[in-house]
C-alpha cells in the first residue's frame, strides 16, 4: 500500500488535565474522503485541531506527506497544504465575501494563480459570486458554510479538514454541502477529512470511516461496511427494528465495550 497522505500515530492531546484524545491512530489516503464519527465530546474536533496545529499533542506523531508536523504553528501548517474549515464556520464577519476568499489565499506564493482559483471557487459555489460584495456576517449559516469551504479551497490545499459542516443547517443545505464535498473529491481528487455528528449523511458520502468514542477509535472500516453494522445503525443512525427503545437500550451493549 502507498504511504498515506496523513498519518496520526498514537496521538494524545490534553485540554489542561483532561485527556481529550487518548492514543488515536488513523491514516488518510490520497484522493479519499474520510469521516470521523462520534458524539459530542468524543474528541473529533480535537483531532482536527491537533492536525492543524492549534493544539499540540503531548504524545504521538502527525505525519503529513512524510514529514512530522506536530507542534508547528498553525500558520506554517496551513502553508504546508492543510486547510481547516473550523466548526462554526468562523468567517471574517466584517469583510466582504470576496475579501474573505482572498484571505484564504493570503499565504500563497504563486499570486498569479489566485484570480483563476477565485473563478474555480465561484464555479463550484455560484452563489458566492452573486454575494461577492456582501459582508460575510450578514449572510445565512448555509452561505457562510459555503464561504468557509470556498475560502479554504483558495489556499489550494492538498488536504481539506472539515469540522461539522452540517452544524446548524437545514437538511436541504446539509445535502448541498455534502454534494459539494463529493464533487470536489470526484473532480479534483482533493483529499478530505470530515468530522461529523450527522452519521447518515457522512457515511453516504465517504469512502472510509472511523468511529470515535471518548477519545478512542472504536471502529474503522469502509463506509459501506460501517453502514451495515448493527451498532452503527442503532447508535449513530437511529435505526431500530423494534420500538421499545428504553428497555433495550440498557440491555444491549455496544460490541466494543
Amino acid at each position: 500500500m502507498r504511504e498515506p497522505l496523513l498519518r496520526l500515530s498514537n496521538v494524545e492531546t490534553f485540554y489542561g488535565p483532561i485527556r481529550a484524545i487518548r492514543g488515536v491512530s488513523l491514516d488518510v489516503h490520497q484522493g479519499t474522503i474520510v469521516a470521523v464519527l462520534g458524539a459530542n465530546g468524543a474528541g473529533k474536533t480535537t483531532i482536527l485541531k491537533t492536525i492543524s496545529g492549534v493544539m499540540d499533542p503531548l504524545k504521538g506523531a502527525v505525519v503529513f506527506e512524510g514529514r512530522e508536523i506536530q507542534g508547528e504553528d498553525p500558520d506554517r501548517i496551513a502553508r504546508a497544504g492543510i486547510a481547516h474549515v473550523p466548526e462554526g464556520r468562523e468567517t471574517f464577519p466584517y469583510l466582504t465575501v470576496r475579501q474573505n476568499l482572498l484571505m484564504g489565499a493570503y499565504a500563497r506564493r504563486d499570486r498569479a494563480a489566485v484570480p483563476g482559483d477565485l473563478e474555480m471557487v465561484y464555479g463550484y459555489i455560484p452563489r458566492l459570486r452573486d454575494l461577492s460584495q456582501r459582508v460575510a456576517g450578514s449572510m445565512s449559516g448555509g452561505e457562510q458554510q459555503m464561504l468557509a469551504i470556498g475560502r479554504a479551497l483558495m489556499s489550494r490545499p492538498r488536504l481539506l479538514l472539515l469540522d461539522e459542516p452540517s452544524l446548524g443547517l437545514s437538511p436541504r443545505l446539509v445535502g448541498e454541502v455534502f454534494e459539494l464535498i463529493r464533487r470536489l473529491n470526484g473532480e479534483t481528487g482533493l483529499t478530505i477529512l470530515v468530522v461529523e455528528q450527522n452519521a447518515g449523511t457522512a457515511l453516504a458520502t465517504c469512502h472510509f470511516g472511523f468511529v470515535l468514542e471518548l477519545g478512542r477509535i472504536v471502529m474503522e472500516d469502509t463506509c459501506e461496511n460501517l453502514m451495515a453494522k448493527d451498532d452503527i445503525k442503532e447508535f449513530y443512525l437511529g435505526m431500530k427494528d423494534e420500538g421499545v427503545r428504553e428497555g433495550r437500550r440498557w440491555k444491549r451493549r455496544k460490541t466494543w465495550r
Binding site: 498553525p74 500558520d75 496551513a78 502553508r79 473550523p86 471574517f92 493570503y106 475560502r151 489556499s155
Partner: peptide
Amino acid sequence: LAAYYMGI
C-alpha cells in the same frame, strides 16, 4: 483563530 487557519 480563523486567521491562523488561513496561514496568516
